[in-house]
Design a protein around this nucleic acid. Structure first.
Length: 271
DNA sequence: CTAGCTTCCTGATAGC
DNA sequence: TGCTATCAGGAAGCTA
């Protein structure tokens, strides 16, 4: 489900419920979710720790503990985080639960079970993958695009999805960025002109910034949607609209596959 | 460096 | 209604 804007919503909405709280009990119902430890080790390490901060980097979230330890987590396709009262029954696929001293719980629910959590002791390096991310989309410059995307023969869409180049862009916003930049997602990176790379830079920043705003919901709305800020978004111009008329020119949008990912673009508006 | 494929899973939906 | 096939917003790992 989530790309950077949705993960940012998770961070903003949940941070006030986590920061300053102490972990009283840890429950792991699906062991493989804890990527670098046994559930027993993880529970022992986490119990009694106090949460200092809750941050995001790309699509990764990090719970910083006062001890200097960190818990890094990735929601992947279907992971969600919610705050529930301790007495509320678990829903299906509740894989990790942090019970806090205030009788509230942080629950990780993930139907496909692709999401992962990592625990890193103080002064040990992050090996979750978050340490190898490219810059945040808002920090992308024209010069950076010229020396990365501009040098590669791979399809633009695939490059936008490469987290080592830019952190946080997923399948939805990659298509939206290409549409708004007027560039076909199938174009080779090194075929882009300076003007096109500039348009790309502008839209990378604009699309991510706008959707962070769109998905910024109050806790009540977030809680009601079970930890999702994403719904079929009226602001999306191409994603999920294959065959429907382009909102600029009216021609039917093309649905195709690029790098094994579903992709939509306008053959008329995107060169 | 690159393209293509598989794998990890459950669930929603489309078609028959 | 029920069955089957297909697809899904992520990403790593493998092959050639």
């Amino acid at each position: 489900m989530p790309e950077l804007p949705e993960v940012e919503t998770v961070r903003t909405v949940l941070a006030p419920y986590l920061v300053g709280q102490t972990v009283q009990k840890v429950t792991v119902n699906l062991p493989k979710v804890i990527a670098n430890q046994t559930p027993a080790q993880f529970c022992q390490n986490m119990t009694g720790q106090t949460i200092k901060n809750f941050t995001r980097r790309g699509k990764f979230l990090t719970i910083h503990l006062h001890s200097g330890a960190r818990v890094v987590l990735h929601l992947r396709m279907t992971g969600t985080l919610t705050i529930e009262k301790a007495e509320t029954p678990y829903t299906k696929h509740t894989h990790v639960v942090l019970t806090l001293l205030n009788r509230q719980e942080l629950r990780f629910v993930d139907s496909r079970g692709f999401g992962r959590w990592w625990y890193f002791a103080p002064d040990t390096p992050d090996t979750s993958g978050a340490e190898r991310l490219g810059p945040e989309p808002q920090a992308i410059t024209l010069a950076y695009l010229q020396q990365t995307i501009g040098q590669r023969r791979t399809a633009l869409k695939t490059l936008l999805l490469d987290q080592h180049i830019i952190a946080g862009i997923g399948n939805i916003y990659a298509d939206e960025i290409c549409f708004r930049a007027g560039i076909r997602p199938t174009r080779q990176g090194n075929s882009l002109t300076s003007a096109e790379l500039q348009a790309l830079q502008t839209q990378i920043v604009a699309v991510i910034t706008e959707f962070i705003q769109f998905h910024h919901v109050p806790f009540s709305v977030y809680a009601q949607s079970k930890g999702t800020s994403y719904q079929n978004d009226a602001n999306l111009r191409v994603y999920g609209r294959a065959g429907k008329p382009c909102q600029k020119c009216g021609q039917p949008l093309i649905g195709t596959r690029i790098g094994q990912r579903s992709s939509v673009y306008c053959a008329h508006c995107q060169k």
